[in-house]
Amino acid sequence: MPDQLVVEVKGAVAGYGEEAVLKGIDCTVRSGEVVALMGGSGSGKTTLLRLLTGQLPLREGEVTVFGERIAGAKRETIQRLRRRLGMLFQQGALFTDLTVFENVAWPLREHTRLPERIVRDLVWLKLEAVGLRGAASLYPAELSGGMARRVALARAIALDPELLLFDEPFAGLDPISLATVGLLIRRLNDALGAASVVVTHDVQESLAIVDYVYVILAGRIVAAGRPEEIRASDDPFVRQFVRGEVDGPAPFHYPAPPLTRTLLEERA
């Protein structure tokens, strides 16, 4: 169904230790949309993804996926919601003891009782969709970074999910693989009629393929808009981030006392 609300995050506060990583986040994702969560390393993007998969408890606020609260829900509810989503991990997270084919077949074998013949047909179709039918018998160790990412993508769409989550899908890829993965994200999202959330700091690639962007800084959303609005933004941090400037609202220096004091203390 088009335009259905798939993800809704309201005033989410969450974190790992004492300090909260996310300090009140609001965002929504609708079906058919590809939404980017952009921000520097450590800004809380991945933490937000972990909230959507129910891997992290929520301290305040509300996170609903497919209209149901996932953070803090019962195990059965979380498992039921997880079956409707697919996730691509940063390094692919393929099972290293299985071939490419077996990796893609894995979710089908775990969650369905389909006959082997149909499982095989589905796997071939998914591998064809990411262009790696010829690599079916390879092991993950034999794949390049970009290929591993595409296999993981095939595995993530094995059960035709309604929500796709991508954790840094572009990190560490060469320009060709980068463009391929970008294209696949857009194409697969549209083919499945799913909603996609792409966590990334790769500005140009993601602005080219997404419908909407949230820019996160230090656990808060500092800007949101369509890609052209983000490009044209005069917010100092957004400009620094989009243009990749070294210094600005996000400082070059990690917080530290003045250099002279450090040097004098060293002497003393």
Partner: peptide, 14 residues
């Protein structure tokens, strides 16, 4: 370390 356990969990497999 390679997120395989996380991936399993997110694929609704304990």
């Amino acid at each position: 370390a390679t997120e395989q356990l996380d991936a399993m969990e997110v694929m609704a497999v304990d």
